[in-house]
Amino acid sequence: MQGVVKVNSALNMRSGPGSNYGVIGTLRNNDKVEIIKEVDGWYEIRFNGKVGYASKSYITIVN
């Protein structure tokens, strides 16, 4: 499943599904990501070869 990031500035990509996990990357508005699965309001995603987590509130699913 594919998604597009929708933010005003930047979205942190984290090592786990929560804001208490470390930041491993930064996503920008309109970045395209691969959604692997949903975990407690977060998406596990793949972006630029990295796998991490981002809040699903800021990612819109596209077909």
Rank of each mutant, 00 (worst) to 15 (best):
Ile35Ser: 01
Tyr53Phe: 13
Ser15Glu: 11
Val39Tyr: 12
Trp42His: 04
Lys32Gln: 14
Lys6Pro: 02
Val7Leu: 06
Leu11Ile: 11
Gly16His: 03
Trp42Tyr: 11
Ser55Cys: 06
Ile24Phe: 02
Glu38Arg: 04
Asp40Thr: 10
Val4Met: 09
Tyr43Ile: 04
Tyr53Trp: 13
Val39Ser: 07
Pro17Asp: 01
Lys56Tyr: 05
Leu11Arg: 06
Asp31His: 05
Val51Pro: 06
Lys56Asn: 08
Pro17Met: 03
Asn12Asp: 15
Arg46Leu: 15
Val39Cys: 04
Gly3Gln: 03
Val39Pro: 00
Val62Ser: 12
Gly16Glu: 02
Ser57Ala: 14
Asn12Arg: 10
Gly18Arg: 02
Arg46Ala: 15
Val4Gln: 08
Val33Met: 04
Val23Gly: 04
Val4Cys: 05
Arg28Gly: 12
Thr26Leu: 10
Val5Thr: 04
Ser15Tyr: 07
Trp42Ser: 01
Gly22Asn: 13
Gly49Thr: 10
Gly18Val: 00
Gly22Phe: 10
Ser19His: 15
Asn8Cys: 06
Asp40Met: 09
Ile61Ala: 09
Ser19Thr: 10
Ile24Arg: 03
Ile45Phe: 07
Gly25Ser: 10
Ala54Thr: 15
Lys6His: 10
Ala10Ile: 09
Tyr53Glu: 00
Asn63Asp: 13
Ser15His: 08
Val5Met: 03
Ile36Pro: 01
Lys56His: 07
Tyr43Lys: 01
Asn12Glu: 09
Ser19Ile: 14
Ser19Asp: 14
Arg28Val: 14
Arg14Ile: 05
Gly25Met: 11
Lys6Asn: 14
Leu11Cys: 06
Met13Glu: 00
Asn20Val: 07
Asn29Asp: 14
Val7Cys: 05
Met1Gln: 15
Tyr21Pro: 01
Lys56Thr: 10
Val33Cys: 04
Val4Arg: 10
Met13Cys: 04
Gly25Asn: 08
Asn48Phe: 13
Tyr21Trp: 12
Asn20His: 15
Ala54Arg: 00
Asp31Pro: 01
Ile24Thr: 10
Gly25Trp: 07
Asn30Thr: 08
Lys6Arg: 08
Asp31Trp: 05
Lys37Glu: 09
Asp40Val: 08
Val51Phe: 09
Ile45Glu: 00
Ala10Thr: 09
Tyr21Ile: 01
Gly49Trp: 06
Ile45Met: 06
Ser9His: 15
Met1Tyr: 12
Asp40Arg: 07
Met13Lys: 00
Ser55Gln: 14
Phe47Ile: 12
Lys50Tyr: 09
Arg28Phe: 15
Gly49Arg: 09
Pro17Phe: 01
Phe47Pro: 01
Gly16Asn: 03
Glu44Ile: 06
Gln2Thr: 11
Asp40Ile: 07
Val33Trp: 02
Ile35Pro: 01
Val4Phe: 05
Gly18Asp: 06
Met1Thr: 15
Gly41Ile: 09
Tyr21Cys: 04
Ser57Ile: 12
Lys6Met: 07
Val62Asn: 09
